[in-house]
Structures are given as C-alpha cells and as structure tokens.
Amino acid sequence: MDLLLWRHAEAVDGSPDHARELTERGQRQAQKVAAWLDQRRPKKLRVLVSPTVRTRQTATAFSDSFEVVPTLGPDGNVADLLAATGWPDSGTACLVVGHQPALGRMAALLLSGVEADWTIKKGALWWFSNRVRDGETQTVLRAVIPSDLV
C-alpha cells in the first residue's frame, strides 16, 4: 500500500479555523506539489481530505475528485488516520490532505514505531509504502517533498 500524507498549504490567520483559506503563497505551494505528484501518482489513488477550507483548496490543486472525511479535521489523531486509510492493509493507494499534529505523529509512528511530535511543513508531502520482505512487514519512506524545493 502507498500512503501519502500532504499537509495543507499556507493559510490566512483568523477564525473560524475551519473557514481559513489559502494565501497566494499557499496556492502556489499547493500547485507546485500537485504538479510533482501528478507526474508520479499511483494509478489508483483514493484522496481523503479534512473538511476545512484550506485542505479542500490544497487538494483541489491536484484533483477535484476527493472524499471529505470529518474525522481528518484539525482535531483528528493517528487512530483516525489509520481508520480512514486502512493502513497498511488497504489494496488502494491513499492520499490524505490534513493537519498537524496528526500527520506528523503518523509519520513518526510509521518510521519509528512510536507516535511523536514530528512536524510536517505546510504544503509538504510525505510518501510511504508498505511491503513484506523475508516475512517481515516494512515501511518505506519513498519521498519527502517540501513545496519550496519543487
């Protein structure tokens, strides 16, 4: 299974939190990462998005076809991510457009086996794969793409 974690791009400050829109810089960040991903995307890719405006705007830079999942909102956690994506057993690649701290904690869990407060930069994409080698399940970090390096 491929699991892609994409933190929403830069958004304006303010409230209500769920209505915050991307800044012009955030729109450029989302477009850059979306263009990179479009050239490399898994053939069958399920796109799951938090219900906030900024995550939906980030996802729209890549695709208009996505599923809004309420549990992936700013208050979501690793258990919510695991339940929504079906990691590691789902047969379909999954892209999650979401928030800190859940995305960073998920990345930490996948790479170290323990949830920790890791930070995923705004607009960045982390791509993981799961495989079995010699009877052992392994998580592979395929890419980390910060928006300022694409």
Rank of each mutant, 00 (worst) to 15 (best):
W6M: 08
G104V: 08
D117H: 07
S50F: 05
R41A: 06
D75Y: 09
D17H: 07
R25E: 08
V114N: 13
G14L: 08
K32P: 01
V12E: 12
P16Y: 13
S90T: 14
V47N: 08
G14H: 09
R142M: 13
C94T: 15
I120F: 00
R40K: 15
L110T: 02
G26S: 05
L110R: 09
V68G: 02
G123A: 10
E10Y: 01
R40M: 06
V33T: 09
S90P: 07
E10Q: 15
K44N: 15
L141N: 10
E67S: 05
L141I: 14
E24Q: 07
L109V: 09
V12P: 01
A11N: 05
R28E: 10
A35T: 14
Q100R: 08
S63F: 04
G86C: 05
P42Y: 04
T23D: 04
E67Q: 12
D80R: 06
D134P: 02
L125F: 06
L149C: 13
Q29V: 01
L37H: 01
W6V: 02
R105Q: 14
Q138V: 10
E24H: 05
L45M: 13
P74S: 15
E115W: 14
T85W: 07
S15W: 15
R7Y: 11
I120M: 08
S129W: 03
G135P: 08
T55L: 10
V68Q: 05
V144G: 10
K122N: 13
G73Y: 12
I145M: 11
K32A: 15
W6Y: 14
W6E: 08
T55S: 10
T119P: 04
M106T: 15
E24A: 13
L110E: 11
R7W: 11
F128V: 03
H99A: 14
A124E: 04
T52F: 08
R54C: 09
A107Q: 07
L81I: 15
L82N: 02
A107D: 01
E136S: 11
V132M: 11
S65Y: 11
L22R: 00
A9G: 14
L125T: 03
S50T: 00
K44W: 09
L103E: 04
L5A: 04
W127D: 01
V47D: 05
E21V: 12
A84W: 07
D2A: 09
H8C: 12
L110Q: 12
L110V: 06
A79R: 10
S129E: 11
E24K: 12
L110H: 13
R56A: 05
A61C: 06
G26N: 03
T119H: 13
N130I: 00
G73T: 08
V69F: 02
D13G: 06
V53C: 04
T52E: 07
D134E: 14
D117V: 07
G113K: 08
E10T: 14
E67C: 03
D13V: 09
